[in-house]
């Protein structure tokens, strides 16, 4: 949470721009005429990819504002591979603060089980007593259980005592 500088970024947008010749649907003469509907799908394909990457980057930036992420790329990779999870995390952030307090730190991490299944853990870093953490987590679970949806099975909320 900043108090002074509103602009804390370089102002550069590093989402890849669309360069010529990276993708052309007509680099060679097609043997058969391409159906019109198919052409429509591929028209602007790279622009769509670029817009998608920009949106994804913006969501990741927003996640960083609410959750501490590890210095390696494990969480960022997980979020890129599970596109619905960042939105769920952002929705959960307000409820986590409501239950655990506005100054509480929330940390993300990933684990892989024996079957190779990867899970994202959103852990509340709790400096208080365990009973308080459990009570707050139970309150948060009321919201969470009502909002579990397909794709969120890889996400768990927990706490870490410090």
């Amino acid at each position: 949470m900043n108090a002074y500088l509103e602009l804390q970024a370089s102002g550069n947008n590093w989402i890849p721009s669309v360069h010529d010749m990276q993708f052309r649907s007509n680099q060679e003469s097609p043997t058969f005429p391409v159906p019109r509907s198919c052409v429509a799908i591929f028209n602007g394909f790279e622009k769509q990819m670029s817009a998608f990457a920009a949106e994804s980057e913006a969501v990741l930036r927003e996640v960083r504002r609410h959750f501490v992420m590890p210095s390696d790329s494990s969480v960022a990779t997980f979020l890129a591979e599970h596109r619905s999870v960042p939105q769920t995390l952002l929705e959960a952030a307000d409820h986590l603060r409501e239950c655990f307090g506005t100054d509480t730190v929330f940390r993300l991490g990933t684990t892989v089980d024996e079957a190779g299944l990867q899970t994202l853990h959103a852990a509340v870093i709790w400096p208080g007593r365990v009973a308080e953490a459990r009570t707050a987590l139970a309150r948060f679970d009321d919201w969470w259980l009502a909002h579990v949806r397909p794709g969120t099975g890889h996400l768990t909320f927990t706490y870490e005592l410090v």
């Binding site: 002074y4 500088l5 509103e6 804390q8 504002r65 959750f67 929330f106």
Partner: peptide, 9 residues
Amino acid sequence: TIDGSGALA
């Protein structure tokens, strides 16, 4: 300048 971060939790 020492500030809180507006970009990181």
